[in-house]
Amino acid sequence: MTLEPEHADRQRGELADALRRLRRAAGLTGASLASRTGMSQAKVSKIENNRVRPSVVDVERILTALGVPARGEDGSRLLELARVANSDYQGFRTALQRGLGELQRDLAAVESSAATIRFFLPCMITGLLQTPEYARQTLAHPLVNRGAEWQSALARRLERQQVLYRTGKRFVFVLTEAALRWPLCPPAIMALQVDRIASLSELSGVEIAVVPSDSLVPSGPLNGFTLYDDRLVTVEVFTGELALRDPREVSYSREIFDFFHEHALTGESMRSFLEEIARGFRSDAKYDIS
């Protein structure tokens, strides 16, 4: 199966049709199925008419109520469709076709709608924490033309940072030392970037945590991700971005996040650590002849 949007949309429709056919084959009304699953009749109707995206758990409950074995051919196929239905993938080239400015607008919308956002950053510093110089470098790409659209995307990324100052919102950033030290920019700029992170950690709604490289952590960070409340996790890869909505995927991502958070420095210990890294970059800047 593929997670490209047009295929995922078709598979969601296939899932809705299959669940409706199974209910009718079992001789049940929508109300009867709703009673057996503990769902509302309205939700069952919306699932069968492809107006609500069912979670994997929802599909499991429906299959159980209909007496369809989850490990049988039909059950396995429908559960796989449900997993796809709760996953979206947007390739980098598709994002470029829409425009980088539109991508920044999309990110701003989902950030605005979430009360708590958790970032796990093992390799890079995310947009909400970036200085303008660091942000310019992250947007540099062979496929991106540095014209008016590029300038617009940069401006919108920096505008997104205003969300950090809104009351009633909470942001938790867990970074590895490697992410802070990755030499994306010259040392003097990296020093300012680390200073920026230390400054933002003083905001009431922002928590910064750093996993030092000399700390014993009995698991490796395979990839970064962002958690929006307990409803969505996004994973960025070189070729695009994957969005996962299934509650189990979100819950497992939260467990991973909490694991690395437990091994991270926070508060004054974290700020002292950042100061040490910034001093190192400034020392390197004295000898930088690039």
Rank of each mutant, 00 (worst) to 15 (best):
T239P: 02
S201Q: 08
F225S: 00
I197C: 11
L203E: 14
T234I: 13
P218M: 07
D230L: 04
G220W: 05
S204A: 14
L227P: 01
S215H: 12
G224W: 08
A198I: 00
S204Y: 09
V235Y: 14
L242W: 13
A209R: 15
L222W: 10
T226C: 13
E207D: 15
R196H: 14
E207W: 07
S201H: 09
G240F: 04
S219H: 08
V210A: 07
R231W: 06
S204T: 15
V211M: 04
A209S: 12
V206R: 14
V217T: 01
P212Q: 05
L200A: 03
P212H: 02
T226L: 10
S215L: 04
E207P: 03
L216N: 07
P221M: 00
Q193L: 04
V194R: 11
I197G: 10
P221F: 00
P218G: 07
L227M: 05
L232T: 04
I197R: 08
T226P: 02
F225G: 00
T234V: 14
F238L: 11
D214E: 15
R231L: 07
L242S: 11
V210D: 03
V210L: 07
G205W: 09
S213K: 08
L222C: 05
N223M: 10
F238M: 13
E236N: 08
S204H: 14
D195C: 07
T234Y: 05
S215C: 07
T239L: 10
S213L: 15
S219M: 12
P212L: 01
L222Y: 09
S215V: 10
L203Y: 12
D230V: 03
R196C: 02
Q193A: 13
S219I: 04
Q193R: 12
D229P: 06
V217A: 01
L216Y: 10
A209P: 08
V233L: 09
R231S: 13
L200H: 04
V217F: 00
S219F: 09
S213T: 11
L227T: 00
S199D: 14
S201I: 11
R231K: 10
L232I: 04
G220K: 05
V194W: 10
V217L: 01
Y228V: 03
L242I: 15
V217S: 00
G240V: 01
V217D: 00
S215D: 02
D230Q: 08
T234K: 13
R196W: 05
I197Q: 08
T234H: 11
T234Q: 13
A209G: 06
T234S: 15
G220F: 06
P221W: 00
Y228R: 07
G205K: 12
V194F: 11
D214C: 12
G224T: 00
L216G: 04
V194D: 06
L227S: 01
Y228D: 01
V237G: 08
E202T: 14
L232W: 04
G205P: 14
V235E: 01
V237S: 10
V233D: 02
V194A: 08
R231T: 13
I208D: 03
E241S: 13
L222N: 06
L222V: 12
S219C: 05
L242P: 11
V211F: 02
S204Q: 14
Y228W: 08
R196I: 03
V217R: 00
D229W: 03
